[in-house]
Amino acid sequence: MTSHFFWNGGPVAFRSGETIAAALLRAGITDLGRPSATPGGRVFCGIGACQGCVIAVAGAAPVEACLTPAREGLRLGPLPAIGAEHA
């Protein structure tokens, strides 16, 4: 059985146990974009230190994609995009 979460509304498949970062990268999603003057989000250090892959989670606090196990049905997006909705 394939599981999915949603990135910017589009489904992304993941395997049980893997992180959000692993699933996004396998789907070819490297730019975790951020509409601001600072550089866009991206997976970089893989250990939660650089905070470059922090993403918004609908209905919950932002998380580091590299630390967080993917879960069925999560609705994810770049930081301000979803974050603004439930601010």
Partner: peptide
């Protein structure tokens, strides 16, 4: 530890990762 990076123009781009970060991903997947 934290990996040390010597910066160059473009090191901040998506598609650039630390070798250690890529290695932990490889070990997981």
């Amino acid at each position: 530890a934290i990996e040390t990076i010597r910066p160059f123009p473009g090191w901040e781009l998506p598609g650039v990762m630390t070798a250690g970060g890529a290695q932990v991903l490889l070990k997981e997947t």
